[in-house]
Amino acid sequence: MIQLNNIYKYYDNKFQRTFVLKDIDLTINEGEFVTVMGPSGAGKSTLLNIIGMLDEPSEGKYFFLDQPAHELKEKKKVEFHRNYVGFIFQAFHLIDEMTVYENIETPLIYKGVKHKDRQAMVADMLDRFNMVAKKDLFPNQLSGGQQQLVGIARAIVGKPKLLLADEPTGNLHTDQGREIMKLLQKLNEEGITILQVTHNEEFAKCGKRIVRLVDGMISTDEQIR
């Protein structure tokens, strides 16, 4: 599903080149649950953003579903975001002026789903995450855990093939974090490919494979389950 060949990411200053990622080769198949770990500044988030097509590699090739993603035009990328990828963020990144319902509904609108179908799909999500009663509340009226649930609901409502989670539990209490991880595991069992970045060893083990980055390079890559 995802194939990275010799991916470099660097920034040029006046006199020196700062590398964030160096010569990354990585293949992720459908149905995997990969955790990316590593110290601050190792390039975890950058890797995730390149895979999510929010950022572009400086060098190297990236194939998504056998398509050369590094050659995609801006419009194609939007299509990619609409149809194949869902994002979950540490800071939730919900739209503050929208209710829970509207936040979950928005990607479906962009996807062009009809009103009736949207209603059914959003209702489904609310039902699944036990948030029916909270559908008219605004994000700032919810706890962190609940906000992240909305974030996940928004990410998966469009039935993406890939879910990218950048420290999804980073802003949560441990209990809330465990719940979120359980949910991710369940989603993975249902067939969604998941790539998460975390600092937390316990949550890292929820995945099936752990990739460790040090100074922009892959140091270890182990299958744990």
């Binding site: 939007v78 609409r82 994002f87 990144h93 962009y110 469009g158």
Partner: peptide
């Protein structure tokens, strides 16, 4: 932020 999120979840620039 609103703009950024909307772009990530699939809005064109024109939108």
């Amino acid at each position: 932020r609103e703009v950024g999120i909307k772009k990530i979840i699939g809005s064109y620039r024109w939108g």
